[in-house]
């Protein structure tokens, strides 16, 4: 994220002897209570701000709201004085109310959730309506079977074969080298019929039927959701 800086200039987070960042301050013990006692005798810069109206905060957005009167046609000095006070108060608030954790990566602050109501960019997603099968399964109390991989053991071949696909188990009876002739059928229709082709057609029909159901579920979901 922080690979390039905004414009010309040196990145702030590079180490520099003159630059004093807040994190190093805190690591040096700016947050420790003991340091107050040590340096109590030295000259103190004020860290509190007195204003007639108190500030409001939305720490989740790192936001401070100042309702004090801003002079009309303010000079730059006035504006930066106002900004400094707000920055001081905001940082005070962040450091006193948020949980500070310090580890090898640096010092981090845990922020609360934002409180200012800002609009979302898209509506909250609605959950997908259940399919007909899901409804039926729920009614009957049918649980999903746990799937254990693609391979299944074939007792006849004494080997593992795929459940579907090339040489799949679902193609059983489609390429048998010998099939029994259906006597009854031959008598009725006059011809023996192809058992292998029929089996294959039945499988294809099952797939088509499932696709049809899927489409119907999608259509229903679009209509109702």
């Amino acid at each position: 994220m922080a690979d390039t800086e905004m414009t010309d200039g040196v990145p702030l987070n590079g180490p520099s002897p003159t630059d004093s960042t807040l994190a190093s301050r805190i690591k040096d013990g700016a947050m420790d209570v003991s340091s107050t006692i040590d340096t109590a005798s030295g000259s103190r810069l004020p860290v509190t701000v007195e204003k007639p109206n108190p500030y409001e905060f939305d720490l989740g957005n790192l936001l401070a709201i100042d309702t004090n009167i801003v002079p009309r046609d303010p000079s730059e000095e006035q504006l930066s004085a106002i900004a400094r006070d707000a920055a001081q108060v905001l940082i005070n608030q962040l450091l006193t109310t948020c949980k500070v954790t310090s580890n090898a990566d640096g010092v981090t602050l845990k922020l609360p959730l934002p409180t200012t109501a800002l609009p979302r960019e898209k509506p909250i997603p609605t959950p997908k309506p259940p399919t007909k099968w899901e409804l039926f399964a729920a009614k009957k109390g049918i649980k999903d079977k746990k799937r254990e991989g693609k391979m299944v053991f074939d007792e006849e071949k004494q080997d593992w074969v795929p459940k579907w696909g090339y040489k799949g188990k679902n193609k059983e009876g489609e390429d048998d080298w010998l099939v029994e002739v259906d006597d009854k059928k031959e008598k009725e229709t006059g011809e023996a019929g192809d058992k292998r082709a029929e089996n294959r057609q039945a499988r294809k029909d099952r797939v088509k039927r499932n696709e049809r159901k899927q489409r119907a579920n999608d259509r229903n979901a679009r209509k109702n959701g």
Partner: peptide, 16 residues
């Protein structure tokens, strides 16, 4: 120096 890209700024609003 300018801050790095994508940094979250602190924001303040002044005025009633």
């Amino acid at each position: 120096r300018k801050p790095a890209e994508g940094m979250k700024p602190m924001i303040t609003f002044h005025g009633s």
